[in-house]
Structure formats: C-alpha cells, structure tokens
Nucleic acid binder design. Structure first.
Length: 263
DNA sequence: ATGGTAGCGGGGCTA
C-alpha cells in the first residue's frame, strides 16, 4: 500500500500538477494539506474520475486538509481533539483521520501543523498548544497497539541536517528549540519517522520557498513527515520524496513524500 | 537589513 502526504498550497492552483503526479506516482491514499478551499468548492469529481474517494475538512482561504483514497475507508473523523488554551473550539481546518482497509487496517491521520511565525507571539503560542494536543492524540494511537501513522506538513525542521542553511532558520518557528523539543516529545513516545529510518544524512528536502530562487539553489528544508506507531513501522518497506516535481510547471512549494507499507 | 514569490479573493493575510 502506497500512502503519500502532499501540501499542495491551494487545490484550484494545482488542478494540472496534482492529477499529473497522481497518474505518474499511483498512490493508493493521499493526505493533502493547504487545500485552501471550503468543502463545497473542492473539485472532488476530478479525483473521483481517477478512482479516488474524497473527504475534506475545508476552510475559506487558508489551511484545509483532505484524504484521497482508492481503497475503502472507515471511520472518517475531522479535527484534532481538544480545545484552544482558553477553552474555545479550534476553528482551523488542520486534521483528518480515517482507517484504510487493505490486507491490514491502518489508522491514518493527516495533519497541517501551525507554522507559528512570528516568534514570539500568539501564533507561536498556538503552535506549541496545538503540539500538546497532538501529543495527547499520539499517546492514544500508541495505546491502541494498532498500525497507525500521522503524516503531513509538520512545519518542523527536526535537525540541522534537514535544512540546506540551518543558520538562517535559527530564530524561525520551524526550527526554534521549543518547537523541536515538542516534536521530539512525540517521537520519543515510540514513533518511527519513516524517512529517517530509511535514509540518513543531509540533502533531502520537501519544501523550497518560491522566493529568491530557492529551488534552483537547492535551498530547501525537510518539514513533511510520516510518524508511525511500532505496529505500523513493522510494515514499512520504503519511504521516498518526489523532489523532481518541484521543477515542473506551476508547482506547489512542497513536494510529495510517500511510504510503501506491507498492508 | 531588505525584499524577494505565490495563493486566495478581490484587500490584506498567510506562508
């Protein structure tokens, strides 16, 4: 089973590039982030025609997540459990879950973790608060002792080797010590980060800024990740980044990351 | 230090 995560930066702007990649890469399931569309305006028929069922958690203009699947899905749920620090509901569309039915059932969580800039400020507070709620959901997934994964745009550069120029990210919310510590707290519960488990070392990125020719200078960062429970990591066969499509016509600033699991 | 680009939506915010 091939499962991908892809921050598409706007579904309307990606109606050429996304179907092109789907036809080439043939993933069974895709977790999308930044659809930047309300549910009613998501062009589901484009993907249904390619054999996918479509589920969205949309929002006007910003954020928004979705699942495309060629395989049967069960128990689709929207929203990361918990509330904002003040007790209000979280109105931002950043979390979708479903169980995909292959040889083995696997619980899939698609996430768009808050960017958090500027630091300090309310957006950074929201990021760290959101990561505390993610920690709680991660504990529950581990306690289930079933194959499960959380994948998406984490907006976290885990280590210096995950940036071409780490020094220019030192004060950024994606690389601040508090952000990375919150990410490690989740990892250290016992999750396997699929790409690092398969490919060690520098030079592998999933995002290149549109500005200042970042792609042409390979000035990238690796911020799109798969975190797997032990029961899911046991099934892991491969994890790759489809970096080449960043150089295609009208690309997203992120590229797809995918895993192949024996499920 | 600054500005550089892209998306949404039709101005300014987000990244």
């Amino acid at each position: 089973m091939k499962i991908a995560t892809f921050n598409i930066n706007g579904i309307k702007a990606r109606l050429i590039a996304l179907p092109d990649w789907l036809k080439q890469a043939q993933p069974d399931v895709v977790l999308l982030q930044e659809i930047k569309s309300v549910d009613e305006n998501f062009p589901a028929e484009v993907f249904e025609d390619l054999g996918y069922q479509v589920h969205t958690q949309g929002q006007k203009s910003f954020n928004g997540v979705a699942i495309l699947s060629k395989l049967p899905l069960e128990d689709v749920t929207l929203g990361l459990p918990g509330t904002l620090a003040n007790g209000d509901p979280d109105e931002q569309a950043r979390w979708i879950e479903a169980t995909v039915i292959g040889k083995t059932a696997v619980r899939l969580c698609g996430l768009y973790l808050p960017n958090g800039n500027p630091v300090p400020g309310p957006k950074y507070d929201y990021k760290l608060d959101w990561m505390n709620r993610l920690l709680d959901r991660a504990k529950d997934l581990l306690n289930s002792e079933e194959p499960a994964l959380m994948a998406g745009d984490y907006n976290i550069i885990p280590q210096a080797e995950d940036a071409a120029h780490p020094d220019k990210w030192r004060e950024d919310a994606l690389f601040r010590p508090e952000s990375r510590a919150a990410y490690r707290r989740i990892l250290n519960l016992g999750f396997t980060e699929a790409f690092r488990a398969r490919t060690a070392g520098p030079g592998h990125y999933s995002f290149w800024d549109y500005q200042a020719g970042a792609w042409n200078r390979n000035d990238g960062i690796r911020i799109d990740h798969f975190l797997m429970t032990p029961q899911c990591a046991d099934l892991l066969r491969d994890c790759q980044i489809d970096a080449d499509i960043r150089g295609h016509e009208k690309p997203s600033d992120h590229v797809p990351v995918w895993v192949d699991i024996d499920a």
